[in-house]
Amino acid sequence: MFIEIKNAKKQYGTGEAAVYALDGVDLSLEKGKVYVILGPSGSGKSTLLNMIGGLDSLDSGELIIDGRNISGADKKALTAYRQEDVGFVFQFYNLIPDLSVEENIEVVADISKSPLDMDEVLKALDIEKYRKRFPKELSGGQQQRVAIGRAMIKNPKLLLCDELTGALDTKSSLAVLKFVEKINQSYGTTIIIITHNEAIADMADSVIKIRDGKIAKIKENPQKKAAAELEL
């Protein structure tokens, strides 16, 4: 398995205010697949994504990614992991406002050992003509494509998308999802998308439902739809 999560637990707060964001999660994910994690707000899906992305650490349990135990990794190892193996796309893009499109992508390429070709990524995401523009000069969908480009330039093994269409209109959402699908097909990148939008689940190889910090259901999707066919 590419990702193995065993009895993962994460608690925020103490005493009566304590909340188990992850309460004994067990999960196995295969390489090169698209996974959609569904769940209501506060269910623990973002926490799970943060753990897999090396942004936060588990209180207990194991998290093994591509044979490497992330749960016990120190800060330096987690930084190296984020630098090389994982790409993030967030709901609100989180682009650096003072950097242009190509600079926002270059900021990652700059620290990556074997980055993809910048022009290739810009072209693939159809943002070549905006390369000199700054985030403020782009629409939400365009910004999200830049964010995907930034995540992809390092050619990560794993792409984590946190509500990537949450701030976009339907048309832009579809366009963005098509690019995500294209990345999965072109580079064989494992993709995990967390979303409230159940319609997106149709493009996943597997759909994971999470509730109260626990895996509620895992559903394989043998007849997954192409992104273009999604009814958002």
Binding site: G53, L55, K76, T79, A80, Y81, R82, Q83, E84, F88, N94, I96, D98, V107, V108, I111, R150, K154
Partner: peptide, 12 residues
Amino acid sequence: NNISMLKVLGYD
């Protein structure tokens, strides 16, 4: 915000 994003991107 920029610092946190740089951390996320793998900057040490």
